[in-house]
């Protein structure tokens, strides 16, 4: 569905992404993790077509939509207008299916998006992206700045979306434990290069990765799940 081959992205003379190859198959939920400034956002913006690729190729044979970092609301417009604008390129602008999937949004539909909490805005951002009826959903930072409970709720919605609607998801996430828990497969990006990839369960056991990124956090994750 999505294949990146040796992709290089530059901003002036700075190289943000340096020869990345990866692939996502239909129906998968794949994570792209790594520290701040690793080039994750550049990569996802290139897939969305808003950042040019200096060399290499991106092959995407599906409709995609992005949930951008920082949620990027149309702040002075209502939730419903935000959703309807998500369908800019399609004829079907009825938000009813989104309300069915994310009932909280129906309650908030007349509120201005700028007045919502971070978690509510993230839900609007997801809903707005879903209005384009994407086969591939790109999520740039799901958990950033949100309370764990809110993140857990959003994560449930994504898993449901993936399992019940068959939407393929590429999740960009700094909180690696969360990414590994949600996605069966992951790529680790560091300084513009893929440094590790494979099954999340195996990556989580990799001692080098544990030391570098996880700080023993992986062990904590199942306990959190038990509690919920």
């Amino acid at each position: 569905m999505l294949t990146l081959n040796d992709v290089v992205i530059r901003y002036g003379s700075a190289v943000a992404v340096d020869g990345v190859s990866l692939s996502v198959e239909r129906g998968e939920m794949v994570a792209l993790v790594g520290p701040n400034g690793a080039g994750k956002s550049s990569l996802v913006n290139a897939i969305s077509g808003v950042v040019p690729v200096a060399s290499g190729s991106i092959r995407l044979d599906a409709r995609s939509a992005q949930v951008p970092e920082g949620r990027q609301m149309f702040a002075d417009m209502s939730v419903e207008d935000n959703l309807r604008l998500g369908a800019w390129k399609s004829k079907d602008r009825d938000p009813a299916p989104i309300y069915e999937m994310l009932p909280d949004l129906q309650r908030l539909r007349r509120q201005k998006a700028g007045t919502l909490s971070g978690g509510q805005q993230q839900m609007v951002a997801v809903g707005r992206a879903l209005m384009a009826k994407p086969e591939l959903l790109l999520i740039d930072e799901l958990s950033l700045g949100l309370a764990p409970l809110v993140v857990a709720g959003l994560a449930d919605h994504l898993q449901k979306l993936n399992r019940e609607h068959g939407t393929t998801i590429l999740l960009i996430e700094q909180e690696i434990a969360l990414a590994f828990r949600l996605c069966e497969r992951a790529y680790v990006l560091e300084a513009g290069r893929i440094v590790a990839s494979g099954e999340s369960a195996e990556l989580a056991l990799d001692p080098a990765l544990r030391d570098a990124y996880l700080g023993g956090e992986v062990g904590g994750t199942p306990r959190r799940e038990d509690a919920s």
């Binding site: 969305s48 808003v50 939509a65 990027q72 609301m73 149309f74 604008l85 390129k89 707005r128």
Partner: peptide, 9 residues
């Protein structure tokens, strides 16, 4: 209001 988000949709 938000050119970046506008471009993405």
């Amino acid at each position: 209001s938000n050119p970046r988000a506008a471009r993405l949709v």
